[in-house]
């Protein structure tokens, strides 16, 4: 009842929600642009930061790796502005305190991401910092998608259908485990792309990710398929996982098996790797949405534990 009243308190703001969706979409564009930079080995084609060849905005001679690096910087700069706007808007119009915190957190994350991007350039792409840059990017994407979800009409106005989860491990635990293994995979993939690690940990861990995500999706679909908010992200997560495995295999063939002697990054490698990164981001965000919806619709049921002494009177 209390939850219902709180939900009614928050009015749905269509423009605010649309802007949140736009920001989330823009984030995916920036992630794709960043993947293009790495795949084309163009990360240091503009040697200075925050300026680009001494200027903040001026378009340089648009050739070679500069095209990718400069475009990435510009769209990333625009995303900082978008995030500032959505954060300010949320702080002004939003009644839910935790969502205002989340919006401010989003802005802090995008600032941290910009700093990591700068450090990547100024320190000549150390694998740890470049990987952190890639990981924080996807974290920010998840936050942006979550804000879009929380500002949506369904979330604001819907009376959630709730089914308690008495199984162990609970579905919520499984979704958290899924997010964890995806993060590990993200770090392993980032380290491989930035020459800090061999390819095999990323490939081996893909089996672990597949197992955990399939387990989570099967549990969600077999037990809670009646709940649309759980069923939809579970199906999407499974579809994205299959797509991602196919893309990963293609990226492996084009980069490791066929492309290791190439004089420069070749188109099949670039296309498969960039798509692999973008779909990876979508997979992580979908899993986060699933976790949020499970937390809302399938709360964990706890048994009331009776002290041992009360269970066995003879012990007294």
């Amino acid at each position: 009842m209390g939850n219902r009243l709180k939900a009614i308190e928050t009015p749905y703001n269509r423009a605010h929600h649309a802007f949140a969706i736009f920001t989330a979409c823009a984030t995916l564009v920036v992630i794709t642009a960043g993947a293009l930079v790495t795949s084309n080995d163009a990360g240091l084609s503009v040697p200075d930061w925050p300026t680009s060849f001494g200027y903040l905005i001026k378009v340089p001679h648009f050739v070679g790796g500069i095209r990718y690096e400069w475009s990435h910087r510009m769209v990333a700069g625009s995303l900082v502005s978008l995030t500032l706007a959505i954060a300010l808007w949320t702080v002004v119009v939003e009644r839910r305190r935790w969502l205002r915190w989340l919006a401010v957190g989003a802005f802090c994350t995008v600032v941290a991401q910009a700093v990591l991007g700068g450090l990547t350039v100024l320190l000549f792409q150390p694998p740890a910092i470049s990987t952190a840059h890639a990981t924080v990017a996807q974290t920010f994407f998840c936050i942006a998608v979550a804000i879009a979800l929380f500002t949506g009409r369904k979330w604001v106005e819907e009376q959630p259908r709730v089914e308690f989860d008495a199984r162990r491990p609970s579905l919520f635990t499984l979704t958290l485990l899924s997010i964890f293994v995806l993060y590990v995979q993200l770090v392993l993939g980032g380290m491989f792309r930035h020459h800090g690690l061999s390819w095999w940990p990323h490939v081996v861990h893909a089996a672990v990710v597949s197992f955990v995500l399939v387990w989570t999706a099967v549990r969600a679909l077999s037990v809670y398929s009646r709940i649309e908010a759980v069923r939809r992200p579970a199906i999407l997560m499974l579809s994205l996982l299959i797509t991602q495995l196919c893309l990963g295999f293609t990226a492996f063939l084009t980069r490791v098996a066929w492309g290791h002697n190439a004089a420069q990054p070749e188109l099949p490698m670039v296309v498969s790797t960039v798509t692999h990164v973008a779909v990876g981001a979508l997979l992580l965000a979908t899993t986060v949405i699933l976790a949020i919806q499970v937390w809302r619709h399938v709360p964990v049921a706890f048994e009331e534990r009776v002290p041992q002494a009360q269970q066995d009177p003879s012990a007294a």
Binding site: P50, A87, W101, F107
Partner: peptide, 26 residues
């Protein structure tokens, strides 16, 4: 979190980013 705190945090964040950009440029 009240609105004042949110505003303050974002202002600090923006100033920090601007300061960092200026420092890196110098």
């Amino acid at each position: 979190m009240n609105k004042k705190t949110g505003w303050a945090m974002m202002t600090v964040g923006t100033l920090a980013l601007c300061g960092l950009l200026a420092l890196a440029a110098c």
